[in-house]
Design a protein around this nucleic acid. Structure first.
Lengths: 235, 235
DNA sequence: AGAAACAAACAGACAAGCATGCATGTTTGT
DNA sequence: ACAAACATGCATGCTTGTCTGTTTGTTTCT
């Protein structure tokens, strides 16, 4: 191996692909961190917070517990950073959707479907584990707040953009937004015990007509729906 | 003590209240079981499944781990029986509401509020812990199914009764029911991170108008809302 | 009716397993 | 040569289930 390094030079030799390539400290560090975060997220999903042991996480990531301990001061630190990472990723995703919305190239149906994609799958399960654990873990709870707020704000902004042209008043839009979020959260929760895509599709269909009908009803001037404005102090 | 028993007779002596009263085996057994179940439910709520240790449960119940182990074969057994107990209790509660509904003495608003009472508070937190644990615990999952079905069926029946006279078609009612359930589940979930009664009250208000408006819209003969019937194969 | 035999209810101690954090070495890059 | 990245073993604490011993209630037999 030493011979190899001598023969082919320190880095970027064309043949280095075959041997253990030399990387910078930063690269090494970044990769193991990434692998650990991925592994954490995976195990959070399919074992849950309590059963996702650091030993298993390290194993799954293909590194040793020593490496894990070197990069993250504790299990909770690892979990927090992992969840943060995931959430920020999705915030990016949301911003992309926002672009589509601004361009006006997204139907109500497609928009709702897009949101359901957000809420079904890995993201929800991870945050579910995180939230339930956070109920009894002050550190997790504390660390969770700010990112969640960010996430929620991004989503809310996109939503507002979408309904900007529909003639609905702000408070109504806010109420519909929060209701939609709660609905989807509830649907996701049910997903755990009931695996039935058609059922959720029907529910989504129902919701779309409600949203459509509701905005229509509003346009024709009906009663006030929420008693007060909800200016996004959401979590 | 032996003397006491001798003096006052075996059972039901008027003065026995002051001394350790003699109870039948069944009474003794029933009480400690009840205490253990209560303690389990409490700790499930404020420590979560993983952190609710049998040691703490026994301590909280005022009995020893030996007694716990005598009555329940394992921690999971205890948890399952506790949750079953709670759920059946609430099923009774639901049936009472059903009586009110049948008597016609419940407004839509009151009905929705009543459901929210079901979903906010202890019941939800317990089932949340149970469900999240059940995700990775086949035994819990298995045991959870039948009671949940019962619970859901009771609720669904009551709901159907309520909308029987509104002129809505069955499929619409079913869709609205499931949507309502999901909404409330989602609201409950949010409760963990956001304590803001006014917010939830607003959401509930929004939902009431949606339900009302929806049934109105239906009566005047609008489009179909759900593509297919949902005949309660819910979990 | 009273006492002995039995069974259920309960108490406390024990052992095994496991997860976390730390502390010590070793390799790799600067 | 120095520091960061990684590897490995150890020690502590905690939880669960089991096992043995004691108390309490019930039954049966005379």
């Amino acid at each position: 191996m030493l011979v190899c390094l001598f023969l082919f030079g320190y880095r970027d030799g064309m043949l280095n692909r075959t041997v253990r390539q030399r990387r910078t400290q930063e690269e090494r560090s970044a990769e193991t961190r990434a692998r650990l975060i991925d592994a954490t997220l995976d195990l959070l999903v399919d074992r849950g917070y309590a059963l996702a042991t650091t030993t298993d996480i390290a194993k799954r990531a293909g590194v040793t517990r020593g490496a894990l301990n070197h990069h993250f001061s504790s299990k909770d630190d690892l979990v927090v950073q992992s969840v943060n990472h995931l959430l920020r990723e999705w915030i990016g995703e949301i911003r992309q959707v926002a672009e589509l919305v601004k361009a006006g190239s997204l139907s109500l149906s497609a928009f709702v479907d897009r949101m359901w994609e957000l809420f079904s799958g890995k993201l929800f399960l991870v945050t579910l584990e995180h939230v339930t654990a956070a109920r009894h873990n002050p550190y997790l709870r504390e660390q969770l707040v700010s990112v969640t707020r960010e996430f929620h704000a991004a989503l809310d902004g996109t939503w507002q953009d979408f309904f900007d042209g529909t003639g609905l008043q702000k408070p109504e839009v806010g109420a519909a937004f929060n209701a939609t979020l709660c609905l989807m959260r509830g649907m996701s929760l049910q997903t755990i015990l009931r695996d039935d895509p058609a059922y959720y599709a029907r529910l989504l269909g129902f919701w779309k007509t409600v949203l459509a009908g509701h905005s229509q009803q509003q346009r024709t001037g009906a009663s006030a729906i929420s008693d007060r404005t909800d200016q996004g102090g959401s979590q």
